[in-house]
Design a protein around this nucleic acid. Sequence first.
RNA 1: GUGAGUGUAGCUCAAUUGGUAGAGCGCUUGGUUGUGGUCCAAGUCGUUGGGGGUUCAAGUCCCCUCACUCACCCCA
Length: 420
Amino acid sequence: MAERVRSVKGMRDLLPPETAIWAAVEDVARRIFASYGYGEVRTPILEDTELFVRGVGEATDIVGKEMYTFTDRKGRSLTLRPESTAPVARAFVQHGLADQGLPVKLYYVGPQFRYERPQRGRYRQFNQIGAELIGDPGPASDAELLLMLVRFLEALDYTGLTVLLNTVGDDESRARYREALVAFLEPHREVLGEDSRRRLETNPLRILDTKSPAERELLADAPRLEGHLTAQSRTHFEAVGQALEVCGVRFRVEPRLVRGLDYYSRTVFEIVAEGLGAQDAIVGGGRYDGLIGDLGGADVPAIGFAIGEDRLLAALPESFRRAHAPVAPVHLVAAGDVEPSQLLELAERLRAEGLDLVTELGGRSVKAALKRADKSGSRWVLLAGEDELAAGELSLRDLDAGEQVRLGPDAAIAKIKGQS
RNA sequence: GUGAGUGUAGCUCAAUUGGUAGAGCGCUUGGUUGUGGUCCAAGUCGUUGGGGGUUCAAGUCCCCUCACUCACCCCA
């Protein structure tokens, strides 16, 4: 036997019936996001590498070592998108969406690619459902975006999620704090690990979310970002929290929460779920007030989030799964000497009347066909035998009740629709 | 990129100190020439991930390699 070709490492197939659940989750997202005035954007999977270098940041791990980058036939450097905020921002600038009036509200659903070692909840191709609110600097926008996110998760029957909230301040706050943090850490260089020492130069704030016990101990006495916020940043953050409280959204302020993408500013957040192992963040997001300017657009503030759809599905409540399991269609079975073409024609007429059905054309026994119908979870079987067809009728078998009646096609459809 | 664990049938797993590769589920057929679930019977299913080595003999021991899993890291 020839060697089997397998899917690429870290990339997986999604098969029925699981794909039906994915579709159901995405339907909920579309419905809820639409109810907040968001429209769908679809950007290319491939972008100019420069977009991510400038947008996500050269010093980030994503850009530094996790991108699928290659040169095309003309020598251009292209990259499989590792995230979608930068592409959406690029599209916003490229198409002059600001001229339609701000804010612009967009959402997307689709695959992202990062070259990492796969493990639970982490794939090299993974799907994100994200939303971006572009063009409103106010805290009420932060709160509304979070509200929409929470409502979405509630609609999936999620409970027991923790919303972690923090602010990384505006540029000025961050510059001040950065200086203070480096000044504090510099004398303790020897306590820091290799990564943290490198970050002391490139991105000191990232050191805050270290898991190293020694570093954590050291950081306990470190200056707080909170103490270095500009009055404006502080007011903004307080207003976000207040709005969430008014709307009944529970959250926890997590001062150590900083995010790995350079474009974040002011409000940042994360939602973690239980039972997911080490990769438990199902949502991450925050403000990116400077990104659109960095990409050559006007100075337009924005905020957004990205949901890890694979993780979302991995932790999806059973109740939602049950409610959205696909319904097995009716089976139409030929019995006796019935021409396949005759059965096809009959099936088409029934489908035209709004019946979902699968045909048993295999030329196998009625017994086998019924077995398949039963295993599929279907309740109804329509038997089209010589006798029935001659009389212009069908036998409708109710597999649950074990009952069978002969009746005309319209009556059969009515009975199925009335009882399923 | 680093570390650890695991690879046996489509799936879940057995196989004693190295000694004939198995079970359940699934799938196909029959018991019912046009009737499912339960039951009974038969059939189908393997280069034991791959390569090399040790041995009379390797699923089992050793080396290499690949894949998967988990953790670090990273992040969704």
